[in-house]
């Protein structure tokens, strides 16, 4: 069975990617199961979607602990723990495809991965920085599994994006086709992922859940502000950056209108953005009267931070 997992953020089209790939497999005569997995759907929050394809009816359900192919729409997702982690369950035979401007070898070393790592060059002008890359990712995946024809891919895109305007559909067909071509030399590198271990091979490792008093076992948070431990800054694909030269120190404007209360002034009145929690909505960029806040791609900002 082919097991493919797409990771991205709400709005990037990972559900659509899974549906395109699912429909393409289906057109090739496979039995298919595709599903998005998200909790409380929030734009910008990480989501993943899975595709299973096999020649026999698919009995497996739910999470995909052993993917054969993982596609990551956005490299800034890599530090996140969403869905048990973008890289969870990736064995040596698995393939990781990153949509990134950084080359595959660098990523392989950074992440210390045993599996094969590939990249699909990031072209921000095509995606608007944080745009829809569903068809692109599906196109790459279709070639990597090796048994999906270009016709099946295009048919699936037409089917899944039927509600989109003709121009948008055409652009997505082009992007997907380019991704499909870009993966040519890796075509068929994705293996049908291994079956689950045989009966008796792995212990379920159950424990007896003991009684614990309600003080401990009721779903209560005894404290305040624990949410600041959640680094929603990782949702960001675009980063607002304040130019201190142009900033007029009217911090009450950007600071009040920032939905996440992530902008506060330092002693001199210069607003400072809390990048741990800034989600990259860019309201501050839009409201700054002096146009002193600009947005830059998060990946680029991180590269700059990494190499001062």
């Amino acid at each position: 069975m082919y097991r493919i997992r797409f990771h991205g953020r709400g709005g990037q089209g990972m559900k659509t990617a899974s549906r395109i790939l699912g429909s393409a497999f289906f057109a090739e005569g496979f039995e298919v199961q595709d599903a998005p997995s998200y909790g409380a759907e929030r734009r910008g929050a990480p989501i993943f979607a899975t595709v299973r394809a096999a020649h026999a009816p698919i009995l497996e359900r739910g999470p995909m602990p052993q993917p054969g192919l993982v596609i990551v729409a956005d490299e800034t997702l890599l530090p996140m723990a969403a869905g048990g982690g973008v890289l969870s369950g990736m064995g040596e035979r698995a393939v990781l495809l990153l949509h990134s401007a950084v080359d595959a070898n660098t990523w392989k070393q950074r992440l210390q991965l045993a599996c094969r790592v590939l990249t699909l060059p990031l072209r921000l002008e095509e995606t608007g920085g944080r745009g829809f890359v569903g068809a692109l990712c599906a196109g790459a995946a279709a070639r990597l599994v090796g048994i999906v024809s270009r016709e099946a891919l295009e048919g699936a895109i037409r089917q899944e994006l039927a509600a989109m305007p003709a121009q948008v559909l055409a652009a997505n067909l082009t992007q997907a086709g380019e991704a499909y071509d870009a993966m040519k030399k890796h075509a068929g590198c994705v293996c049908e992922a291994p079956e689950a271990p045989a009966p008796g091979a792995v212990d379920a490792n159950w424990i007896d859940l003991p009684f614990e008093a309600a003080e401990l076992s009721a779903p209560d948070i005894h404290g305040a502000l624990t949410s600041i431990q959640v680094r929603t800054g990782l949702w960001r694909t675009l980063r607002p950056v304040i130019d201190p030269e142009r900033c007029s120190r009217c911090h009450w404007l950007c600071g009040s209108l920032c939905p996440d209360a992530a902008i506060s002034p330092e002693a001199e009145g210069l607003p400072v953005i809390d990048y741990e929690h800034c989600k990259g909505c860019l309201v501050c960029v839009a409201v700054c009267p002096r146009h002193a806040i600009e947005s830059i791609p998060e990946a680029q900002a991180r590269e700059q931070e990494a190499s001062p």
Partner: peptide, 28 residues
């Protein structure tokens, strides 16, 4: 038997560590 693993209990303990911590110093 509840299907529940030792690893899951460790995960719950990690969450409880946050939820049940005394109100702590914060820079917010």
């Amino acid at each position: 038997r509840l299907l529940f693993t030792a690893q899951e209990l460790r995960e719950v303990r990690r969450l409880q560590g946050i939820a049940l911590a005394e109100r702590h110093e914060t820079t917010h």
